[in-house]
């Protein structure tokens, strides 16, 4: 049997196993808890929520 068959067989077993393990581990360590405050990451004190940026067209005085 060519080497590639071993790689294929191995992958078919190992990939889903690794995926399942990763999901279980991630869930058990709380990585799926996903607070909406993460959505605030693009903002900071200098450019907080509620302040638009880049409003440069049509405002020229």
């Amino acid at each position: 049997m060519p080497v590639i068959s071993f790689i294929l067989l191995g992958s078919v077993v190992l990939l889903p196993a690794a995926a399942l393990w990763a999901l279980r581990w991630a869930a058990s360590t709380g990585q799926f808890r996903c607070p909406d405050k993460v959505a605030l990451l693009p903002f900071d004190e200098s450019e907080p929520v509620g302040v638009a940026t880049d409003q440069i067209l049509g405002n020229r005085r």
């Binding site: 690794a18 995926a19 990763a22 581990w25 360590t29 990585q31 808890r33 996903c34």
Partner: peptide, 15 residues
Amino acid sequence: MTMSYGPLLFLGILL
């Protein structure tokens, strides 16, 4: 306080 997604992300990307 939640954990960083770093390792999960990395595994997901590769798998």
